[in-house]
Design a protein around this nucleic acid. Structure first.
Length: 335
DNA sequence: ATCCTGTTTCCTGATT
DNA sequence: CAATCAGGAAACAGGA
């Protein structure tokens, strides 16, 4: 794993224009396009066979429409429901769309069964059922610790592998950026295109006060395509970016990967303390591709959470915060 | 094209 | 004195 990341770190990423100029027909889960994507550690055909991945092997966020239906069918089967209970035509959507639906929308779409669908999906979103065996299928060639069960966990940890040494982050690219770079380098490129996405990307000239994005920006279309192609790599990674409080929460929930950054002060009450405030800010900055992030700025964003009751004020204690009633997923026995 | 959300940036002043 | 906290104001990016 480290070998991959070091390699990625040296890679020169000169925008992702290659993909931007292509017509990624394979963004659609129904596509039967037979392009091949070659990564130096993966090689697989992007064809319908790839989408044969079982719905329960990947995070709902990355389900294709077909996998959404498989899931619905599974619920019918396991709950011994009549097929009429769930209007499949209302779920002609992919996993990303599915995951964005509220309980109300589920109820609107599926009536009383909506609640069942919603709660089951919430369970899957948080607890997952993803196994590393996905790597053994679909002709995926893994040139790293292929059988290491921690591999999936490592990918799931997403961007913030952290050097256990004091305060310095490991020089790495996050998994998404890394894979984008790999694909953009390996894919036959430079078909000219008038697509607005491509144009937008090319015409992007930052104003004086705009933030830096290191040129590693990709059109959402290409990004979605990659996330469809590489679901296993993007497990539990919100393609639109994790919120700050979720980022903090996830560090807290993975102390073994991020030792000494933030620690629980009172686990049951949701009280935690920053131990290395600037290091956490750097990590957050890395995730947002913003090298100028500081604890000062991160803490301003944290203070905005008080009003939304995602955080509660903890008076008189420096670097101490407390999750509020609108923060989810931090409790030990929470689904 | 416009609005909204969630930050990011900068700032002044207070507190530890 | 430095670090942190508090919160206003404006800018910004991305999504709806």
């Amino acid at each position: 794993m480290i070998m991959i990341l070091e390699g990625a770190g040296r890679m020169s990423i000169n925008s992702s224009s290659n993909l931007l100029h292509q017509q990624p027909s394979w963004t659609d889960g129904y596509s039967t396009c037979n392009e091949t994507v070659n990564l130096w550690f993966f090689s697989f055909p992007v064809s319908s066979s790839f989408y044969g991945t079982q719905w329960h092997e990947i995070h709902p966020q990355y389900w294709t429409k077909f996998q959404v239906w498989e899931w619905l069918q599974h619920l019918l089967d396991t709950n011994q429901l009549d097929a009429n209970c769930i209007p499949f035509q209302e779920f002609d959507i992919n996993g990303e769309h599915l995951c964005s639906m509220s309980l109300q929308e589920f109820t609107q779409a599926a009536g009383t069964a909506g609640q069942l669908l919603y709660s089951n999906l919430q369970h899957l979103k948080w607890n997952g059922q993803c196994g590393s065996d996905i790597y053994q299928s679909h002709n995926v060639i893994v040139k790293t610790e292929q059988t290491d069960p921690s591999l999936m966990v490592s990918w799931k940890e997403e961007n913030y592998l952290y050097d256990s040494g004091y305060g310095s982050t490991v020089e790495l690219l996050d998994s998404k950026t890394f894979c984008r770079a790999q694909i953009s380098m390996m894919t036959p490129s430079h078909q000219s295109s008038d697509s607005s996405d491509a144009k937008k990307s090319q015409d992007h000239t930052p104003k004086s006060h705009t933030k830096k994005h290191n040129g590693i920006k990709i059109a959402s279309m290409a990004q979605r395509a990659l996330e469809t192609v590489l679901p296993a790599l993007f497990l539990f990674s919100d393609p639109r970016g994790t919120h700050l409080w979720e980022f903090i929460r996830d560090i807290l929930l993975n102390p073994e990967k991020n030792p000494g950054l933030i620690k629980w002060e009172d686990r049951s009450e949701g009280v935690f303390r920053f131990l290395k405030s600037e290091a956490v800010a750097q990590l957050w900055g890395k995730k947002k591709n913003n090298s100028s992030m500081t604890y000062e700025k991160l803490s301003r964003a944290m203070r905005y959470y008080y009003k939304r009751e995602i955080l509660e004020r903890v008076d008189g204690r420096r670097l101490v915060y407390k999750f509020g009633k609108n923060a989810r997923g931090w409790r030990e026995n929470e689904n």
